[in-house]
Amino acid sequence: MKLSHIFLLIVTAIIPLFFISCSEDNPVTPSAPLDTTTFTYPMKDGSYWKYNLTVTYSDFKPDSIKKYFSNVHATARVMVLYDTVINSVNTKCLFEEFLGDTIYREARYYYINTDTAFLLYAHRGFTSGFLPQKDDPPFFNIFDPPQKVLLYPVVTGKHWEIDTSNYSTKTYLGFENVNTQAGIITCMKTVRSYTSYIYPPNSLTVEYYDYYSAKGLVREHVFLDNMEVSTIQYPEGLGIADITGETILTEYFINP
């Protein structure tokens, strides 16, 4: 399928939001014992995670449109900072920063970790994603109700709505081993599905594949197949290309 006549500059700025015809490439899953024990997200102060992030373009048709694309490489760091109260709600603050050749962006996320769910309550700063924009204005947003990032216990087949919009859902697909620079980690593979009706009556659906573990978030992957691209100079379309977004853990520390 194709996403018709979307300007190239717009598409590259909002990759996380408007994917269509998404599929998932299987990660390297080494032969190792699977730890299928349920877990909760690690949220002790001082814990941190480091990631490599990439967005790559491939399979250009025609080959001449390559000049309109530039692969993106960045690193990310996430750290658990402290407890804080927002509107009488106890939350835990996570600091996140992106760093690339021409990119620096940071944000703070405020979570609630209960016996039944891991919830995103608020967000301050720049929005995150595969293509951080350093000139975006910062903002503070409270999610009412909080977004359901994970549900406990973590068991295969569980499915839920992330928020009350009816446009976003998440499903636990099953445990898999993921190979990273930080070692082989058993994760619960999940799929996040978002549907947008920005171009009615047609809907656009994006699927992210996330890998969570007792060590935290380990991997994110999304693939866009046969995206039709246009520019202001060529509004009728230049051709098509595939886009792959990948986030992978490189280092972590879980405060005991």
Rank of each mutant, 00 (worst) to 15 (best):
S4P: 14
H5G: 08
H5Y: 14
F7L: 11
V11L: 11
T12L: 13
A13G: 14
A13Y: 11
A13W: 05
F18L: 01
T29L: 07
S31V: 07
D35G: 08
D35L: 11
T40E: 07
D45K: 15
D45G: 12
D45E: 14
D45P: 08
W49E: 00
W49Q: 00
S58K: 06
D59L: 02
D59Y: 06
S64Q: 06
I65N: 02
I65S: 02
K66T: 01
N71V: 06
H73V: 09
A74F: 03
R77I: 08
L81P: 09
Y82I: 13
D83L: 15
T84R: 13
N90K: 08
L99G: 10
D101T: 12
E106W: 13
Y110T: 02
I112T: 09
A122L: 00
G125Y: 00
G129T: 08
F130P: 07
L131H: 14
K134F: 12
F139W: 10
N141R: 15
Q147K: 11
V149H: 05
L151Y: 00
P153S: 02
P153R: 04
P153D: 00
T156V: 05
T156L: 03
T156W: 02
T156S: 11
W160H: 03
T169N: 02
Y172V: 03
Y172R: 01
Y172N: 00
Y172G: 02
G174Y: 04
V178C: 03
V178E: 00
T180R: 04
A182T: 01
C187M: 08
K189Y: 03
T190N: 04
V191E: 15
Y194H: 10
Y194I: 14
Y197R: 12
I198Q: 05
V206G: 10
Y208A: 06
R219I: 07
E220C: 15
E220N: 12
E220Y: 11
H221D: 13
H221I: 05
F223R: 03
N226P: 13
M227V: 15
V229P: 08
T231P: 09
E236P: 14
E236I: 08
A241F: 15
I243R: 07
I243A: 09
I243C: 05
I243Q: 13
E246Y: 14
T250W: 07
Y252G: 12
F253L: 14
I254Q: 15
N255L: 02
